Amino acid sequence: MRIGIPKEKNEKETRVAVVPVSIPKLLKLGFEVIIEKNAGEKSGYADSEYEEKGAKINSLDEVMKSELIASIDIPDYSNMKKGQMLACVADPFRNLKETRKIIDAGITLMSLEVIPRRLSKGQSMDVNSSQDNLSGYKAALMGSQHIAKMVPMMMTSAGTVRPAKFVIQGAAVAGLQAIATAKRLGGAIQAIDVRLAAKQDTESLGAKFIDVPGWKDAESSSGHASLFTDKGLQEAFDNSLMNAVKDADVVITTARLFGADAPKLFFGKDNNERMTKEMKEGSVIVDMNTDTGGNIVGSKEGEIIEKDGVTIIGIPMLCRTVPNTASMLYSNNVTNFVTVLVDEGKLVINQEEQVLTGDEGGISAGYGGILIAEDGKLHNNHTKLMEAMK
Rank of each mutant, 00 (worst) to 15 (best):
A164E: 09
G187V: 14
K9W: 15
Y50L: 14
V340I: 05
Y45Q: 06
N10E: 12
D132A: 14
A105V: 07
P75K: 02
D193I: 07
N381C: 01
E51I: 15
A225F: 09
H382F: 13
K269I: 15
G159F: 10
A17C: 01
G366T: 05
A373Q: 05
A17S: 11
H146S: 04
V167A: 04
M328L: 12
Y45S: 01
F93Y: 03
G366W: 12
A180D: 06
N324L: 11
F31H: 04
S120W: 00
I115N: 02
L257I: 04
I74Q: 03
G282L: 02
M279G: 08
L356W: 00
E219G: 09
K199V: 02
F237C: 12
I315D: 08
K208W: 12
K37P: 12
M150R: 05
A140M: 06
L134Q: 09
S43Q: 05
V297W: 03
K231W: 02
K277W: 00
L385Q: 04
Y330H: 02
S364T: 04
K300L: 08
P24T: 09
S48R: 01
G368V: 04
A87L: 06
Q177P: 02
S78R: 06
N380G: 08
A244I: 13
L329I: 06
G369N: 03
G259A: 07
A55R: 12
D230E: 12
L341F: 03
K12W: 15
G298E: 01
K216S: 12
Q131K: 11
E67V: 13
I147N: 10
K208T: 05
A90P: 05
T321I: 05
K346H: 10
K53M: 02
T253P: 08
K246Y: 07
I210M: 05
E344F: 15
K28Y: 02
A172N: 04
A218H: 07
Y50Q: 13
T325H: 00
Q177N: 13
P24V: 12
V161F: 03
K216V: 15
A39S: 06
K246A: 03
K82H: 05
S327K: 03
A158L: 11
N10D: 09
P20S: 04
L86E: 03
V16N: 13
D211E: 13
E11G: 10
I72F: 12
G362W: 01
I192D: 06
A248E: 07
R256N: 14
R195A: 08
L109G: 03
V251L: 07
I189M: 03
I372T: 06
T321E: 08
E13K: 10
D201A: 15
M142P: 13
R117K: 15
S120Y: 00
T290E: 13
G361D: 09
P316D: 15
G44V: 08
E98D: 09
I23V: 08
A39G: 06
D359Y: 00
D217N: 14
D343T: 00
A90F: 01
E281N: 10
P316N: 07
K149G: 09
V161K: 11
G214S: 06
M275N: 04
N272E: 09
V127F: 14
P75T: 08
N79D: 10
L196Q: 13
I304M: 12
N95D: 09
D61Y: 09
F209P: 14
G302K: 10
I305W: 01
N58H: 05
D230W: 08
A255W: 08
E281D: 11
